[in-house]
């Protein structure tokens, strides 16, 4: 029995380095076809208390490709919550219908609460602005697959570093692997002090710069780009100027060097020019596709399909 069997996956804070390694390794095994039908005979509930098409499709596709059955709802309007049922009662009921439960909820801590009420493993598919661990697992798998290692890398995080839950989680995970980090953002969207404090306390070295070109001498292995949301800015002109400065083009890639990998959790708007897509450095679509083997592997680990 693995340490994952029967376990809920709620937060990166619950994971050790060896467990992250096991997920990355199992994702590679699934992708290479080592575990066909690893979810066959299993029913997986997909409870999306807030809409998230991309994440839901990725999870549902993962279950189906693994030979399992998936059922649930895509938004709370079509659930019994609309009739006034409490979240706790919904979880207590559905836990008897399935072998694992995927939960997306706008309230922070909802997935943790569900895991305490459920008799089957719960996988957090995003709880408000708190955690979205499977995004980080697929990011780690993609980095490992593309760069060949996870230890001792230099990772640049660019864009909205203030509100982006994805970049906070990735920074936390990469710190466990001893990465050096470069934070590239407008000052109004800089990495929050509590994240920087945590990194400093764990002995991680990082740089804060205002453009990717400034980080040229850091020899980054990966540049992870995130979307800068227009609604974060009161002044549309300020948004335009910021959005323009935080755009990755072929020229940016040339400055950063041949070996750099460009990642993005998608959807993108303008922050990576389409001309970059055809470069071997662009791995963001592969990253999105890696959500399938990663989520399959995770479901296999928690339901016992992978030991």
């Amino acid at each position: 029995m693995s340490s994952f069997s029967g376990r809920s996956i709620i937060s990166l804070r619950d994971m050790s380095v060896s467990e992250l390694w096991r997920i990355v390794e199992a994702s590679g095994e699934v992708k290479s076809g080592k575990h066909p039908g690893l979810l066959s005979g299993l029913g997986v509930a997909s409870l999306f208390f807030e809409p998230s098409t991309r994440t839901r499709l990725s999870f549902e596709s993962a279950v189906l490709k693994g030979g399992g059955t998936v059922f649930g709802f895509a938004d709370p309007g079509s659930s019994s919550q609309k009739k006034g049922e409490s979240f706790a009662d919904s979880v207590r009921t559905v836990t008897g219908y399935c072998d694992a439960m995927i939960i997306r909820h706008p309230v922070e801590g909802a997935a943790r609460m569900a895991s305490e009420l459920s008799s089957v493993p719960v996988i957090n598919a995003g709880d408000g602005s708190n955690q979205h661990p499977t995004q980080t697992f697929l990011d780690l798998f993609t980095i490992f697959e593309s760069v060949g290692r996870l230890e001792g890398l230099c990772v640049g995080l660019m864009g909205d570093l203030k509100y982006g839950r994805t970049v906070h989680s990735l920074a936390h995970a990469m710190a466990l692997f001893g990465a050096r980090m470069v934070f590239i953002s407008p000052s109004s969207l800089a990495m929050p002090p509590h994240v920087l404090t945590e990194l400093a306390e764990s002995g991680i070295s990082f740089r804060v710069v205002s453009s990717p070109e400034e980080a040229q001498d850091s020899e980054m292995d990966v540049l992870y780009v995130t979307r800068i949301q227009k609604e974060r800015f009161g002044d549309p002109q300020e948004y335009e100027s910021v959005a323009h400065s935080y755009r990755v083009t072929r020229e940016t890639v040339a400055v950063l060097g041949d070996s750099i990998k460009i990642m993005h959790p998608l959807p993108r708007v303008d922050e990576i020019a389409e001309e970059v897509d055809s470069l071997p450095n662009a791995i963001y679509f592969r990253q999105a596709h890696n959500g399938i083997p990663t989520r399959q592997a995770l479901l296999g680990l928690v339901t016992g399909g992978i030991s």
Partner: peptide, 12 residues
Amino acid sequence: PNPNCATNMLGA
């Protein structure tokens, strides 16, 4: 103190 926490919104 987080108003959007499950302890305040869902009775955790």
